[in-house]
Simulated assay, not measured.
Amino acid sequence: MTSLDRGSASSDLPDDEDRADPGGGRWGRRKSRDEHEDKHLPLWQETILLLAIALGLAILIKAVLVQAFFIPSQSMEPGLKVNDRILVQKVSYWGGGEPQRGDVVVFKDPGGWLGSAESSGPSSLVTRAMSKIGLYPSGGHLVKRVIGVEGDVITCCDKKGRISVNGQPLNEKAYIQLDGADCNGPMTRTCDWTAGPVPPDRIFVMGDNRNNSADSTRHMCLDESTGCVPGEEFVPVDLVVGKVFVLLWPRDHFRWVTRPDSFDDVPASPGDE
């Protein structure tokens, strides 16, 4: 046999991929397939991994982006009704951003604003766990509209029954409910009151159902008030969770929640001039 013949014979041998195994199969190809299959996790491990990722994303979203809540009372009617599901976004208040006049915000109870039933939140183990990750509304929070921010002076009311902010009357017909009240700020049992200037890092809030809302006006110390603490009517900004941006459920109530243009003409607070 010449060297050329030997070379030809060598080239005719099957390579690793095509070489037959003793059982008659192609062990090279089988080995390649087995190595590829070994890279896949078992189904139960993949399921646990996917659940862990989903849980982590839910916690991250709740912490920094969006959280679900429900409307606990009639105080925000007619726009938001009892048990409506809403979503709150937190992005607007990142980087030093703060609530603006007209925003509908969710905030933690400053203390004594809610009754025990409203503060209890979800009752079952499952719903409590879901509320922790933002997949179920949690209790102990209030939903109100921001009327005044730092430095603002809020006055009730002009001859037309309108509330004024820094001397500018607000046209609130599009979103408030009065139920026969004589003015747009009746919860003090009088239509003659002034609040502010709003302290730094505080907001003054009111419900849209002006005759049925335990809001800032209920916590003011008027001349005839006893047992109240001045300043309790102002909500600390650091208790604000975020701004309501969508009414999600029931489906027939679905709508985007935006800031009304009635606040556009409010001048800067006297302290900013």
Rank of each mutant, 00 (worst) to 15 (best):
Q177K: 15
M187I: 13
F234D: 05
E232L: 01
P137A: 07
P199Q: 07
P197D: 09
A174L: 12
V235W: 07
P197R: 06
G167K: 00
T155E: 15
S213Y: 09
G227K: 04
I163Q: 03
P99D: 08
A181G: 11
G112P: 07
G167F: 00
V149A: 12
V198F: 03
S119R: 15
A117D: 15
S138G: 13
K173M: 07
V143R: 11
S124D: 12
V143K: 11
P230W: 05
P110I: 02
R202L: 00
D223R: 11
R145L: 11
K159V: 02
T194M: 05
A117E: 15
N184Q: 09
P199K: 03
L142Y: 14
S131P: 06
D208H: 06
V198S: 03
R210I: 01
A181W: 07
V106P: 09
V105P: 13
P236A: 04
P236W: 03
S216E: 10
C157Y: 04
V105K: 13
L114V: 05
S124A: 03
S120M: 10
K173D: 15
G227L: 03
R101K: 12
G148R: 09
H141S: 14
K159P: 00
D179R: 02
R218S: 15
N184A: 04
P230I: 02
P99I: 12
R202Y: 00
D152L: 04
D103T: 06
A174I: 04
L114N: 13
V104A: 14
E232N: 13
K132L: 06
D182S: 14
A195V: 06
T155M: 02
G185N: 01
D152Q: 08
S131I: 01
P199Y: 02
G167H: 01
S216F: 05
G185M: 01
L222Q: 15
S123I: 00
G115Y: 04
Q100G: 10
R189S: 15
R210G: 05
S119E: 11
R210C: 03
P230R: 07
S138K: 13
I154Q: 10
E224L: 05
G134P: 04
S225W: 02
G167W: 00
S116R: 14
L170R: 02
E233S: 09
D179F: 01
L114S: 09
W113V: 04
T217M: 09
H219L: 06
I163R: 01
G102D: 14
R218K: 14
V165Y: 09
L135P: 12
S164V: 01
C183P: 02
S216W: 04
P186V: 03
